[in-house]
Simulated scan of single mutants.
Amino acid sequence: MWELAFIARDYAARRQAIFEDIDRKDGPMWSHIYAVCIETVKGLERRIDEWGRAPAPTEPAPTPTQPRERLSQPLRANDVSAPRHVAKTSLVANTVAQLVTSPGRTPAQDWAPVIKRKAGQVADQVLTRQQREAVQPEALRGYLGTLSLRIMALPVVGPVFQQSFGRRLAKAVLGSPYAETSVYINAAYALSRLAVHSLTEDRYGNVQRDVPTIIRTFTTVIRKLETFRDGFPTHWTDLSQNRQCPEVSEVLNALKDGLAALVEAFGPYSGDLRLSRADMRLAREASQRPQEQRQPEMQQAG
């Protein structure tokens, strides 16, 4: 993509060679370049559409056709090797008997209701009302939340655990584990500049058939990306609340610049390209960058 972007910008002879290479067995060279670049741009839209969806259910593992051979015999009630049944004369004896005859059950499961009831009675007798309210689950969650925020605010430990808006948005749009922006920027640049140069360098007119799809694709991806960015939630660990993502902004600006060049070059031929007025209007709106706020000029004191 990086080399292709250089060719689209600086090397007219190699651009013309791409346009004139039409005798390949598997199709013209332009068709291959167009397919790779447009699929790269559409990858942004595909990730946006798939974000937040539940993963597809995996197929269950096939069950074995034949049962496995038993390695040991099941424990019998009258087995001489098994511990003898102890008379239930005490709570301890009862517990031991249950452990032997029901290995899957623990004493904690039997004692849990009793312990919970006794603990509640002790807490009511020892703790005051304020202390009992302090140990309630809601209060404990509030304490843990405050402690977590204090840890996040530490300059050394905090950045490790904070999930910033920019990092999460870049991962959602550009993919993981490596959110590489240059691939998408160069793909958008190469595709748009090759299409613009085809007006004077493509003698066979192969490129113009794909120009409407390029314009519509750029328009759709830009609008979806802006909507997704504006509605993307901020994580509770992001203490800065900064909704800036330089990586996504760079890709978005590259798409806008490429679309603006296409609209300017092919605007007079939109009717011949079967582009409706609505297509061109949406493309112009999507290609516009937000106007930067001008800094106030310095005024001489009177």
Results as ranks from 00 to 15, higher is better:
Lys116Ile: 06
Tyr269Ala: 12
Thr146Phe: 00
Arg105Ser: 05
Val251Glu: 04
Val248Thr: 02
Met298Ile: 13
Arg84Asp: 00
Tyr189Ala: 07
Pro107Arg: 03
Ala119His: 08
Ala87Arg: 10
Pro74Asn: 13
Ile151Thr: 11
Arg129Ser: 13
Val86Glu: 06
Asn206Cys: 05
Arg132Gln: 04
Tyr143Gly: 02
Pro64Lys: 12
Val248Tyr: 05
His32Trp: 09
Gln293His: 05
Ser72Thr: 10
Val173Phe: 06
Ala153Gly: 00
Ala61Pro: 05
Leu225Tyr: 05
Trp111Asn: 02
Gln162His: 11
Val160Leu: 07
Ala56Arg: 13
Arg129Trp: 12
Ser249Met: 03
Glu50Phe: 10
Lys224His: 14
Asp238Ala: 14
Trp51Val: 05
Arg277His: 14
Arg105Gly: 02
Gly158Lys: 07
Val248Ile: 00
His85Pro: 04
Leu282Asp: 12
Gln16Ser: 09
Pro83Arg: 13
Glu50Trp: 10
Ser198Val: 02
Gln98Thr: 11
Leu71Ala: 14
Thr200Asp: 07
Asp124Cys: 11
Gln121His: 07
Asp230His: 12
Thr128His: 09
His197Asn: 03
Val173Met: 06
Ser81Ile: 05
Gln288Ile: 07
Asp21Gly: 03
Pro103Gly: 01
Thr58Arg: 14
Arg46Glu: 14
Asp21Ala: 05
Gly258Tyr: 09
His235Ile: 06
